[in-house]
Simulated scan of single mutants.
Amino acid sequence: MKSQLVYIIFAIVAGAVLPLQAGLNVQLGKSVSQPVFAAFASFLVGSLGLLIYLFIIKFDFSLFSNVKSVSPIVWIAGLLGAFYVAAVIVLAPKLGTALTFSLVVAGQMVISLVLDHYGLLGLPVKTINWQRFLGIAFLIAGVLLIRKF
């Protein structure tokens, strides 16, 4: 458990920055009256940040040629990320940040259970059981409470 603590904290921090990113992107989108521009700008700045990071860690860019062997379907991940960021920018002002992200988390958990259960995308198999279903039920109950109040 101790070795996983760093990863658990990292996951919590990663989750915590998403509502902050949404709020900042909403402000950017409002400034130009176009939420999709905010998503584009977010990815542009993020890409530049990652490029700088790769230079800092002295990434071997010759390894880039290895992506030729990857299935073309994996490139959809970038489109999924863009869809997610743009959707959150549109939804947060309409639904509120708490409801938007509780729905996002509920959606993530449902798909995560399916991915785990079938070991899709090369992930390890973790069978769906009643405890996992109970966790989803609690998430949905939380979404309903957040929406009501």
Rank of each mutant, 00 (worst) to 15 (best):
10 F>V: 10
148 K>D: 11
113 L>A: 12
9 I>P: 11
44 L>N: 04
60 D>Q: 04
79 L>E: 02
77 A>M: 09
48 L>A: 11
123 L>Q: 13
77 A>W: 06
6 V>D: 05
13 V>R: 06
122 G>L: 04
76 I>W: 04
116 D>G: 06
85 V>L: 07
62 S>C: 01
75 W>V: 06
24 L>R: 02
79 L>P: 05
66 N>C: 06
44 L>I: 11
139 L>G: 08
148 K>R: 14
131 Q>W: 08
21 Q>N: 10
79 L>M: 12
39 A>N: 11
145 L>Y: 10
145 L>F: 13
83 F>D: 01
85 V>E: 00
134 L>I: 13
146 I>L: 04
99 L>V: 00
129 N>W: 05
127 T>R: 04
80 L>I: 12
54 L>G: 02
74 V>A: 04
89 I>D: 01
53 Y>R: 07
59 F>N: 03
129 N>P: 11
101 F>A: 07
64 F>D: 05
69 S>F: 07
3 S>F: 03
88 V>G: 00
143 V>D: 05
111 I>Q: 09
4 Q>K: 11
133 F>W: 12
36 V>T: 14
64 F>E: 06
9 I>Q: 08
88 V>A: 00
16 A>W: 03
2 K>A: 07
77 A>E: 03
100 T>S: 00
37 F>T: 07
43 F>S: 07
3 S>K: 08
95 L>H: 00
113 L>K: 01
12 I>T: 14
84 Y>T: 09
1 M>S: 09
99 L>I: 00
129 N>M: 04
125 V>P: 10
51 L>A: 12
115 L>V: 15
117 H>P: 03
75 W>G: 03
104 V>N: 00
52 I>C: 04
106 A>F: 14
4 Q>V: 05
86 A>P: 05
34 Q>R: 10
142 G>L: 12
129 N>G: 14
105 V>E: 04
147 R>K: 15
65 S>D: 10
4 Q>T: 09
148 K>G: 06
36 V>Y: 12
142 G>Q: 08
129 N>S: 12
87 A>P: 02
118 Y>C: 05
140 I>Y: 11
15 G>H: 12
132 R>D: 02
